[in-house]
């Protein structure tokens, strides 16, 4: 039991260190039916920090970011963003379940890119990117268009403004999806296996866009990925998940080159082979 106690103290210590964290998971659990996907996650992300989540499928890494995007509700525990509980609202001293208004306010800090792009097929590329700035941020059409065109130029698609998603390749679609999320200027960007649905020859262009973005902006990023080289290049910290728990975390060089746990070693060996 002393091990459990030590862990607790360590967690408390971590919590104290992470008072300034942008995003914080405190003992977050998530269950789908009988299947416990996350078993008490403690994780803090600093403003501007780039964190790569790696691990075998079913380890809970996608669930972590989906809960932050408010697409899944945690079974228990607290997620905070900018110090405010995401899924709860303070009424006096009590925490009550968040309503849509609360979620919408906190969601402005979060952006997400999906594995399957999820572009709006009935809108042009430009409208895909201007829709939220106009209707959510309340920018004028000119302002939103300027921002969107700027962003689309940055991802190399400035010449596709009037095209429809179905006319683009997978890599181009994903770059539009990145532009669509980043144009909202969130504080944290979530990337959910954004290259997994792409043909191999299209992976590079998407990763390059994210790399450039990571260097240029002070947005925090949480990247769920199977691309180990990419994780090494982009991330400040790599977190290895196994069975709903953090097995090992640290600098990319430590984690990817000198893995300590056997599980991480065997996980990595599958990628290097």
């Amino acid at each position: 039991m002393s091990l459990g106690l030590m862990e607790k103290q360590l967690n408390n210590q971590q919590v104290a260190d992470q008072e300034q964290a942008l995003v914080k998971y405190e003992n977050v659990k998530k269950q789908f039916g009988d299947n416990e996907v996350l078993k008490g996650l403690n994780l803090a992300i600093q403003p501007g920090e780039k964190v790569a989540l790696i691990g075998p499928s079913g380890s809970g890494k996608t669930t972590i970011i989906r809960m932050l995007m408010t697409l899944e509700k945690p079974t228990s525990g607290v997620i905070t963003i900018g110090g405010e509980p995401l899924w709860h609202k303070k009424v006096g001293e009590k925490l009550v379940p968040a309503d849509e208004k609360h979620l919408r306010r906190l969601r402005t800090d979060i952006g997400m890119v999906f594995q399957h792009f999820n572009l709006f097929p009935h809108m042009t590329i430009l409208r895909n990117v201007t829709e939220a700035p106009i209707h959510v941020l309340g920018l004028s059409k000119e302002e939103a268009t300027e921002r969107a065109v700027d962003m689309l130029n940055k991802v190399g698609l400035g010449d596709k403004l009037d095209a429809y998603p179905e006319q683009l390749s997978g890599g181009q679609k994903q770059r539009v999806a990145i532009a669509r999320a980043v144009v909202m200027r969130p504080k944290v960007m979530l990337f959910d296996e954004v290259t997994s649905a792409l043909d191999p020859e299209l992976v590079g262009e998407v990763l390059q866009v994210i790399k450039d973005l990571a260097e240029e902006t002070d947005m925090a990023m949480i990247l769920v990925t199977h691309e180990m080289d990419f994780a090494r290049d982009v991330a400040d910290r790599v977190v290895f998940l196994h069975n709903g728990q953090i097995e090992e975390q640290g600098k990319p060089s430590e984690i990817l080159e000198n893995p300590k746990s056997e599980r991480l070693q065997s996980f990595l060996s599958r990628f290097l082979a």
Partner: peptide, 17 residues
């Protein structure tokens, strides 16, 4: 597709929108 609902949520659209 379910992804359209999720993307709308991620873009922070209102329900009506």
């Amino acid at each position: 597709p379910k992804g359209q609902w999720e993307a709308s949520r991620a873009m922070n659209f209102t329900k009506i929108h």
